[in-house]
């Protein structure tokens, strides 16, 4: 019984949250890797672009609520995804047209484009602050829990409760759907193959008649979908706060680099690597050990390896370790 309690404890406080957080990071990391693979620069505006898309979802959710539209037990925000994605893509294409395309046509070095993206990041942050402000917003509605701790305890008679939040299930399901469609698109369609070809060998792709403008357009569209959905899922699960999105850039970049930047499979798995590492290393295991160890050995401290304040240090350490020992990422496999 104690053993089961320990498992449930871990499941409730580490595995489920890590799966959820990992999915959110995975979507962001795939965004980074896609931009890097096709457009060849590290997009520092990643976090804020996710925030930008989410902002529309928040505003539209408020609007939908005010006119009485809801999605039953599901969050209204899910209904807003198509509109938010559309606005996000529109914003990205505008930015691309007025900012990035100039440097792309000039064939500027990637580091210059990365610096340009820092500029885009600041502008995006400013726009977000003007439109919605920096404060914390919750826009989750509908049924909050699929399984409540008390219900679980009653059902099983265990001491430990298992809480399954609806956002956790929604996050994982939506991620599976989005990622499957994206991989199918990249690997099985003509346009997807042309994107991979362009990313692999730009000159030869041009000689084969691939239109670079179309590749860039499709890349921004997919990137817009990934960023917006990733951002909305994160916002639903935690809350929408622009500054937090900016902070998330570090774990997202870490995930993309751990997976081997330019490799979407790696980025997807990298998201989970980072999430699990962050949560496992900052979880206080006192209660867990009190279940599995005899009373005499029960730990007196929290048995927490690192304070949660240091969770960014974990992403950063993983990033540095990977860059030192496996700079091409820990996952072998096809690049985009």
């Amino acid at each position: 019984m104690d053993f089961l309690n320990a498992i449930i404890l871990l499941l409730n406080f580490t595995i489920l949250p890590a799966l959820t957080y990992g999915s959110q990071l995975a979507l962001g990391a795939m965004f980074v890797t896609l931009i890097y693979g096709v457009l060849r620069f590290a997009n520092f505006a990643t976090g804020d672009m996710m925030s930008f898309g989410t902002m529309f979802s928040v505003l539209l959710t408020y609007y939908f609520q005010s006119i009485g539209i809801n999605f039953g037990i599901l969050p209204t925000a899910l209904l807003t995804i198509p509109f938010a994605v559309f606005m996000m893509i529109f914003y990205m294409l505008t930015i691309d047209k007025f900012v990035f395309s100039y440097y792309r046509i000039k064939k500027s070095p990637p580091v210059q484009l990365a610096m340009v993206s820092v500029g885009v990041m600041f502008v995006t942050q400013a726009i977000i602050r003007i439109i919605i402000g920096p404060s914390d917003r919750r826009f989750l509605d509908g049924e909050k829990f699929i399984l409540k701790a008390t219900e679980f305890k009653e059902m099983t008679g265990l001491n430990e409760g298992l809480t399954i939040k609806s956002t956790q299930i929604i996050t994982v399901l939506v991620t599976i759907i989005v990622v499957s469609i994206m991989f199918w698109f990249l690997n099985k369609t003509k346009t997807g193959t042309s994107m991979r070809a362009y990313s692999d060998n730009e000159d030869l792709a041009l000689l084969s008649g691939i239109d670079p403008k179309k590749v860039v357009l499709i890349t921004w569209i997919i990137a817009g979908i990934l960023a917006t959905i990733g951002g909305i899922l994160y916002g639903l699960d935690k809350s929408y706060r622009p500054f937090v999105y900016f902070n998330n850039m570090l774990p997202i970049f870490a995930a993309a680099i751990v997976g081997g930047i330019g490799n979407p499979y790696g980025a997807f798995l990298g998201g989970y690597v980072i999430a699990f590492a962050e949560i496992f290393l900052t979880y206080a295991y006192k209660k867990f050990f009190s279940y599995i160890l005899p009373e005499s050995l029960e730990p007196s401290s929290l048995v927490q390896l690192l304070s949660t304040d240091y969770k960014f240090a974990i992403s950063f350490s993983i990033l540095v370790i990977v860059l030192l020992f496996r700079p091409s990422g820990i996952f072998e496999g096809k690049k985009i």
Binding site: T193, S194, R196, A197, S199, N201, L204
Partner: peptide, 25 residues
């Protein structure tokens, strides 16, 4: 049609995909 001296294949794609890209037009 042109075959450059270097980087004349899509190294990360399969043989079949290389041919498919060649027929993109």
């Amino acid at each position: 049609s042109f075959v450059p001296q270097t980087r004349n294949v899509f190294a990360e794609l399969t043989v079949k995909e290389n041919l498919e890209v060649g027929a993109f037009l």
